[in-house]
Write a protein that binds this DNA or RNA. Sequence first.
RNA 1: AGAGAGGUGGCAGAGUGGUCGAAUGCGACGGUUUCGAAAACCGUUAUACCGGCGACGGUAUCGGGGGUUCGAAUCCCCCCUUCUCUACCA
Length: 424
Amino acid sequence: MLQVSVLREQTAHVLAGLAKKHYATAEADVATVLDLDQRRRALQTTNDAAQAEANQLATQIGGLMKAGDRAGADALKLRTAALKQQAQTTGPELAQVEKELQQLLYKLPNLPHASVPEGRHAADNEILREAGTKPTLPADAQPHWELIKKFDIIDFELGNKITGAGFPVYKGQGARLQRGLINFFLDEARAAGYTEMQPPILVNEASGYGTGNLPDKDGQMYHDAKDDLYLIPTAEVPLTNLYRDEIVAANKLPVRMAGYTPCFRREAGSWGADVRGLNRLHQFDKIEIVQITQPENSYAALETMLAHVEGLLQKLSLPYRILRLCGGDMSFTAALTYDFEVWSAAQGRWLEVSSVSNFETFQANRLKCRYKVEGGKTQLLHTLNGSALALPRIVAALLENNQTAAGITLPEVLHSYCGFGTIG
RNA sequence: AGAGAGGUGGCAGAGUGGUCGAAUGCGACGGUUUCGAAAACCGUUAUACCGGCGACGGUAUCGGGGGUUCGAAUCCCCCCUUCUCUACCA
């Protein structure tokens, strides 16, 4: 959520940013925000003054009552009754204006960083670099959805039976590969200075709002109506919300956390042709890294996260490329996002396996996540996160890129983690 | 899941209708003292919003929300949560 003060003091900058994100009704919405803000402040000034008078009268009445002057007290009560009546209209009016303001602010996306390229679609993303060697596959190479059947390691039919589409069952070496990858990613994160965390995978409504998943993406999360809890779409939600309503001590900064969790996404409306196999699932495993930093350090932190993810892909010997997302393709909450894609050789396409973002104060403002600067004033922190990494597409690329007549040859680094070097 | 008891500032812990944003202690910070430190003493020590160039003033917040009242930390209702006992379970 953007800060009203920023809209008020840097209106032109805000409008330019929203335009870069292709937010259609920027002019009108910003004007409305400013208008609501002005009305809100005027109403609060009026209300506060009335409340101050009422408080003063209440004290006087108390004094009169104690002195036994019932008539005097009753006289003052006439005035408080009038104030009360006034409050009955201005009070709800203020609440209404605040609510409208809040709802409109929830609708406005974050402003993009200066380095974000112009553009509307994925095709406009800037390719930062490409690395690794694309493998030359044998003539009878198969896509991963065939390979998993051939080696009997991931079973979609069984998942259909016990749950539904998009909930695969990992079997034998498939399950062990999952476990090995999870451990590998967690160990790497720990070595890079991230504290391993195991959060709940159901969160309450306030947490959904804190990271910006609500109200924007309400339909994308699984929701348990009975207890009003949401299944997390990413560990970003519980981990970042650990710092909701906190004033973080300066010596605890930067916060660095890593967590493995299953992730749940309804993917409403996006179930289509090119989402076969492991490309898109309702449940998948992911290791997420989260940082909370002082504003002046957040872009340096983003670079370290980028380097960390890049190192993982290099250790897995997967060909990859890094994209800087354009304004139109970035998420609602991000100020700057780098996507990592790996080459899925049999599909002949790039698969997104990680998204690393700086949210600046956008989440922190909702979260009320702050620290104290010199002089004792509180200031919003910056939040960042990235996948390090999401498993299914990594598995897809590992299977496709490393298929040989003898089976799937796993990269060296995974052998000890999995307890085997070859699938098949 | 049933019964009972609680949730107050960074922590501990008073306060059961008015002068309470809240005693006291601890901790932390600043100062005095000291060669330095400890001890002692003095002082400071929540957050958000509104008004003001500022000094400062105002409003709200005692788990959350609603209500009663001129006035609520204190009374009433709902929710969340913690502890004890019972039940259950990995």
